[in-house]
Amino acid sequence: MAPRKEQQIFQATLELLAAKGYEGLTVEGVAERSGVNKTTIYRWWPSKAALLAAALVEADLLTMEPPDTGGLRGDLEALVEGVAALLTRPPASDVAVAALGAAVHHPELAEATRGFFADRFAREAAVFERARRRGELSAEADPMLIVDLLAGAVWLRAVFRALPLDDDFAARAVSAVLDGSLAR
Score class of each variant (00 low, 15 high):
1 M>L: 14
4 R>V: 12
5 K>Q: 13
11 Q>Y: 01
11 Q>E: 14
12 A>C: 07
15 E>F: 06
17 L>H: 08
19 A>W: 08
19 A>F: 02
20 K>D: 12
20 K>G: 01
24 G>W: 13
24 G>V: 09
24 G>K: 09
26 T>Q: 09
31 A>S: 15
33 R>L: 15
37 N>F: 02
38 K>M: 09
41 I>K: 03
42 Y>M: 11
44 W>M: 10
45 W>T: 01
48 K>G: 03
50 A>W: 08
52 L>A: 03
52 L>E: 05
52 L>Y: 01
53 A>V: 01
53 A>P: 06
61 L>N: 03
65 E>P: 04
67 P>G: 05
69 T>K: 13
70 G>E: 07
71 G>M: 03
73 R>H: 08
76 L>Q: 08
77 E>I: 12
78 A>T: 08
79 L>V: 12
79 L>K: 07
79 L>T: 07
79 L>F: 14
79 L>R: 11
81 E>I: 01
92 A>V: 05
93 S>P: 06
96 A>T: 04
99 A>H: 05
100 L>N: 15
101 G>N: 11
102 A>N: 08
103 A>C: 07
108 E>T: 09
109 L>M: 00
116 F>H: 13
118 A>I: 07
127 V>F: 00
128 F>Q: 02
129 E>A: 08
132 R>C: 07
134 R>K: 15
138 S>M: 03
138 S>C: 01
139 A>E: 15
141 A>Y: 04
141 A>Q: 09
145 L>Y: 04
146 I>F: 04
146 I>Y: 03
146 I>S: 01
146 I>A: 00
150 L>V: 03
158 A>W: 06
160 F>T: 00
161 R>M: 13
166 D>V: 00
166 D>R: 13
168 D>Y: 06
175 S>F: 06
175 S>C: 08
176 A>R: 11
177 V>A: 10
177 V>G: 05
179 D>L: 12
181 S>V: 14
184 R>N: 02
